[in-house]
Design a binder for these strands. Structure first.
Length: 596
RNA sequence: CGGGGCGUAGCGCAGUUUGGUAGCGCGCACGGUUCGGGACCGUGAGGUCGAAGGUUCAAAUCCUUUCGCCCCGACCA
């Protein structure tokens, strides 16, 4: 491609709405443009990168035995109604009506549709296993789209679905996909971790997330520094210390006036003189967990919720409550932090002064192991502006003890006891064993070798394609711009002729043509621009290899070869520069584990 | 949905407090000089000031309503 004919609208200034590196650089580099909140169009450069990501995914999916299909983005309501997700999905589902008033929606994911496809066409165990995938736009009316391509309302997703005769076989399909995902993420040049995860609304019991490590990531994960254990903090475990407080030497509880000390920080500040840190403060949070009718969103008016719907959860001041674990302990789907008004109504005192010692109402009390181990703690006194010092679980308050907190940096690995390290991650892929969750609801069955009718055992496997494109930038950029991995760069090499000298342009064009002939995807910056502009643009859009040809070098028969990711350039005889580029491109692709 | 911020030329912004006929930088067009890290000089095109209503002799500016975007939180594959 000749730059003079290319549509690459780079920006010198940072668009004001962009914050994260990937967002800023995709906009500045002329890769994408926003059309509405969470809705973007791909400009030529973006489309090129996307094409490369897609082709790597296709390559590995096909290699793993999956077959590509394409399902509609616009779907009649009946399929999601069949499994109940028409109601469950709530506002996230983008709904529309056709001219006759019929209900439709844009597909947020396609389990129902693919299950329908298979139930109509597959009748025998002889036709299994089957793995079907598509790369297609997904639509979710996110409560808050953000960070450019990271969280969009329209986004490109690769979603695959496996169908097997048994749970055992389904796990084999799952393992195959897991391996394929490893190859895909590696070829994309991403630093990632596979972590245990919550299965969320999709359903199913076994799942793993492919988390791309990045400071800007929305997810928090922990990984063991000594073994393979890694998990999303939502489900992370730790080697539990189930020691219970030894209060034999603990003084009697003492009511202390603590005006205006509501937060842990303030309480710790107040009791600092007594040597009490956050790890000796008992934090009490009130959760509302109404049992909700099957398949319906919670309808209980908070103002009417009885005390029995509230739960007091006690954790150490330096710990955070894991709401998923609380919900699990209570046997409900989800819990919500109670409103301030509810807390006052039920416990007679506001947040900050609530405690587990003789609460005003008979609320259920759950105590985290670590909090139960505090032998001389401080907690809210259930009176305005008062805390209780010298309290201990077992003596001053009771409750059901369990694992309720978010695991974090420094906690003990549940599998080997080593130290866990905390990271932030971007969820790039998520793989699930679904079991018969969808097939049973949709009567999707086959006949096994005994002539018996059985539901398909399914798995599903997603990759956020557009999100991966942004993730790659989060991991590969510097102050000058993007540093694309060779495998997904919009061009593999850029040839920069400098100056107005006709001989320079002639020679640069010769090199460019030779690169193309050698199978290199090259860009020739033949624009009538000053050198600085060409350098800046090349760095910004992140082309991995740069061949610079100037008047001085040309006289000496030299070109300059520079890797975007490295600081220094080196001179290469013009006669050898094409070979050098070809060798470097192949070496880098090979290093990423792809075909060279 | 709660909190905060912002909508003025393609992009980034000033002007709003104290109403008076819309400005700067970049980009764009033309001419000239320049040419290895986003050059310089000159000329020029480009704006229903997010939208609607109101106050006023006069509204980007004041009042009301509304739409949109971003950030934090809630929520979320």
């Amino acid at each position: 491609m000749r730059y003079s004919q290319a549509f690459i609208p780079t920006l010198k200034e940072v668009p004001k709405d962009a914050v994260d590196a990937s967002h800023v650089l995709l906009l500045r580099g002329g890769f994408i443009r926003m059309i509405g909140s969470g809705i973007y169009e791909m400009l030529p450069l973006g489309q090129r990168v996307l094409g490369r990501v897609k082709s790597i995914i296709r390559d590995e999916m096909n290699g793993a035995g999956a077959q590509e299909v394409l399902m509609p983005a616009i779907l009649p309501a009946s399929y999601f109604q069949e499994t109940g997700r028409w109601d469950l999905y709530g506002d996230v589902l983008l709904r529309l009506k056709d001219r006759k008033g019929g209900d439709y929606h844009l597909g947020p994911t396609h389990e129902e549709i693919v299950t329908d496809m298979v139930r109509h066409q597959v009748k025998s165990y002889r036709q299994l296993p089957l793995n079907l995938y598509q790369i297609q736009m997904k639509y979710r009316d996110e409560p808050r789209p953000r960070a450019g391509l990271m969280r969009c309302r329209e986004f490109l997703m690769k979603d695959a679905y496996s169908f097997d005769v048994s749970e055992e076989k389904a796990f084999e399909s799952y393992a195959t996909m897991r391996q394929a995902y490893h190859r895909i993420f590696r070829r994309l040049g991403l630093d990632y971790r596979v972590v245990q995860a919550d299965s969320g609304q999709i359903g199913g019991k076994t799942s793993a997330e492919f988390q791309i490590l990045a400071q800007s990531g929305e997810d928090r994960i922990v990984a063991c520094t000594a073994c393979e254990y890694a998990a999303n903090v939502e489900v992370a475990e730790t080697k539990l210390d189930t020691t219970v407080a030894d209060f034999s030497a603990t003084p009697a509880p003492e009511l202390v006036k603590t005006p205006k000390t509501k937060t842990i920080e303030q309480v710790a500040g107040f009791f600092e003189k007594d040597g009490v840190g956050p790890d000796r403060i008992l934090k009490s949070l009130v959760f509302l967990a109404p049992k909700k009718p099957e398949g319906k969103a919670a309808t209980v008016e908070p103002a009417e919720a009885p005390a029995s719907d509230f739960t007091l959860v006690v954790v150490r001041g330096d710990h955070d409550v894991n709401e998923i674990l609380v919900a699990r302990a209570l046997g409900v789907d989800e819990v919500h932090l109670a409103s301030e008004a509810d807390v006052k109504r039920v416990l007679g005192v506001g947040p900050g002064f609530v405690g587990p010692v003789e609460p005003k109402s008979a609320v259920r009390v759950l105590v985290d192991h670590a909090a139960a181990a505090v032998s001389d703690g401080v907690c809210g006194a259930n009176q305005w502006d008062h805390h209780l010092a010298h309290v201990a679980y077992g003596r001053d308050f009771q409750g059901e003890v369990g694992h309720l907190r978010l695991v974090g940096e420094g906690d003990a690995c549940p599998s080997c006891g080593g130290k866990l390290a905390a990271y932030r991650g971007i969820e790039g892929g998520h793989i699930f064993v679904l079991g018969t969750h969808y097939s049973a609801k949709m009567s999707a069955t086959f006949l096994d070798e005994h002539g018996e009718s059985k539901p398909f055992v399914m798995g599903c496997y997603g990759i956020g394609v557009t999100r991966l494109m942004a993730s790659a930038i989060e991991q590969h950029h510097d102050a000058d711009g993007i540093r694309w991995p060779m495998s997904i760069a919009p061009f593999q090499a850029v040839v920069l002729p400098l100056g107005k000298d006709d001989d320079v342009l002639t020679e640069a064009t010769r090199v460019y043509e030779a690169l193309k002939a050698a199978g290199i995807d090259a860009l020739l910056d033949d624009r009538d621009e000053r050198p600085g502009v060409k350098f800046k643009d090349a760095d910004l859009i992140g082309i991995p290899l740069r061949v610079t040809i100037g008047a001085r070098g040309l006289k000496e028969g030299q070109a300059e070869l520079k890797l975007r990711a490295e600081k220094d350039a080196k001179n290469v005889p013009l006669a050898e520069v094409v070979d050098a580029v070809v060798a470097t491109v192949h070496a880098q692709l090979g290093a990423l584990g792809g075909p060279a």
